[in-house]
Write a protein that binds this DNA or RNA. Structure first.
Lengths: 331, 331
DNA sequence: TAATTAAATGAGAACGTTCTCTTTTCTGCT
DNA sequence: AGCAGAAAAGAGAACGTTCTCATTTAATTA
């Protein structure tokens, strides 16, 4: 039905090889020839078939992006969105397209994981497990981990300093003179949860502050849950004077709870969030939060994956992008 | 290097045809045989090659999603995110993967648009032009438009009732007794901009209210620009008592300007946004806004495209998803 | 102008599947 | 046991490119 390279060749009188070249590497073909070929192609509505191309070249110039997070949908997630955007941009710059996959698509009828689903390499974001990584690599599929760290040979992981970020936030609250600092922790993946939790605890202890279990709430990271959790905390007779929330959505919920309880922010209650998502600047007063360099995360992951695809040997490393406290109006 | 179907066939003693069947349509193969084949495949780390598969089947089970918006990056965009998510989900359900492309990738060296970039159909979101659609269809590529309407034969467009949504918002403000209603309009695509603008004007006129050019500001849809624009409006001696903002980001900027000017919302200034984005519920007080059914938009676009891919003839239609006023606390 | 080199073009195999058609094996029934 | 009919398995072409290598044409030099 659709015209192939052969039809074009026939029409313009050149060989299919030359036609192929006119599209794939125009510089190898005389301008005059090129013109003729393009004209013929246009007349036939010919367009090179990327699949056939990928088949013979053994590469697709596609990269897969797979998120393993149960909590949120993929793209709505305010944490992954900017990362995704950055990955997309880097890939686009280097001539790669991006493919979104869910875990489901990776399964063969025999249970093996597989992404011969036309891509040259894969970014696994979130809490993927070792099995997946092993399966993929057995198929010679380059892999890079994003926002997760697995201790495997030749595996590059791009994360942030979860512990350090939490420590930064709590340290800041202690500096401002707070002694009763609550923790509103989203139940993220174990790696994330534990790192931030330890950051919180260690800083308190370092300053001789007691860790009070009653000031710690573990919740689903939604605004509603955060409002409920914060409300409980704020209704205690010796309520915390500051809250560290392990992401901005939770922090925003906490702010709402505070405002509704008639507390002024930051005078009556200081709040620090985590992620520096878009929302943190939307809310009034603007949220003090921990910024993680998501653009860097995306770019680094994409760049390393592409390097690997293009022949560089994979190496074992955990790259931690910078965290930074952004002091705004809630502290 | 990597094992092919032939290697597996040789190892397990079956023909390549049977091995192919074991993966592509397991029900056509005895369980015993299947077991043996899977075992051999595992031993060789064999995985079917999707490219070769796509080549012979003439289809890829991939769908392209292309956004034409200059204003925002693709995914960060609070308007497109939920749509994208919905498209992703629908595709995934129906066995399709999603491909993100930018305009750039569609161009051949000869200037033609082209997405033989391994996909079976394309969703064009935002202000794509007729040329693109024509080019793609010449290549027998099924196309559906999202958030845009072009008057072309057999072209299905999924949009929302831009005019009606704006009318709903302004009507609501009039009902609450406002006579001086300002318009803070983001400079979106002509289609969107004009529809919402006319909605605003028509409702005012319908109620015998004069359209005052000084109450209308056209801005880039960013928080900063919105703050500046709203601040100007609010500093007039006969300032508006209500603002219709053509998206939530602008509305949030307006809220910030109002709060900073010491105005109470909604007592001193009522505000209505547009889109019902995540942020509208984040801010305090929560924003009254026009909800567009983005989930439906994404799902409908994806479903129609898939139907077309699977053989249904394309038809000309503009499907407008519901708009609805969500009254919250700012009016 | 002839000889040499570079540039442009062409021929044909190869990529790894699935599809159609054919052959073989199995199942159930008389 | 014999036979029909169904189920399972196999043979070989086909999909539309690009790649390597060979050939022709053009450009450069002596």
């Amino acid at each position: 039905m659709a015209a192939t390279i052969l039809d074009v060749a026939k029409l313009c009188g050149y060989s299919k090889t030359t036609v192929s070249r006119a599209f794939a590497s125009p510089e190898l073909v005389t301008e005059k020839t090129r013109e003729k070929i393009y004209r013929a192609a246009k007349a036939l509505n010919y367009t090179p078939d990327a699949i056939a191309r990928a088949m013979v070249r053994g590469r697709t110039d596609n990269i897969g992006f797979i998120i393993y997070e149960k909590q949120y949908p993929v793209v709505l997630n305010p944490f992954y969105s900017p990362i995704f955007e950055s990955v997309l941009q880097t890939c686009s710059q280097k001539g790669y397209s991006l493919f979104i996959s869910s875990d489901r698509e990776l399964r063969l009828p025999n249970g093996q994981a597989c992404v011969k689903k036309q891509m040259d390499g894969v970014i696994l974001a979130g809490h993927s497990d070792e099995q997946i990584v092993t399966d993929l690599r057995r198929q010679n599929m380059p892999v890079v981990l994003l926002n997760n760290a697995l201790d495997m040979e030749d595996l590059l992981c791009v994360t942030t300093d979860q512990y350090g970020g939490a420590a930064l936030a709590v340290e800041h609250l202690v500096e401002r003179g707070h002694r009763r600092i609550g923790l509103l922790a989203g139940n993220f993946s174990p790696h994330v949860y534990l790192s931030r939790y330890s950051g919180y605890c260690d800083v308190l202890q370092k300053h001789g502050l007691k860790i009070d279990g009653r000031l710690i709430r573990s919740i689903e990271p939604t605004v509603e849950q955060a409002i409920a959790g914060a409300a409980e905390l704020l209704s205690m007779e010796d309520r915390p004077t500051a809250l560290f929330c392990t992401n901005d959505t939770i922090a925003i919920g906490a702010m709402k709870a505070a405002i509704r309880a008639g507390l002024r922010i930051p005078a009556d209650l200081a709040i620090v969030g985590y992620d520096d998502s878009e929302n943190s600047r939307m809310i009034e007063p603007e949220l003090t939060t921990v910024r993680v360099d998501k653009t860097a995360m995306g770019a680094i992951a994409a760049e390393h994956l592409i390097a690997q695809i293009e022949g560089e040997p994979p190496r074992k490393e955990v790259i931690q992008t910078a965290v930074e406290l952004v002091v705004r109006e809630t502290t």
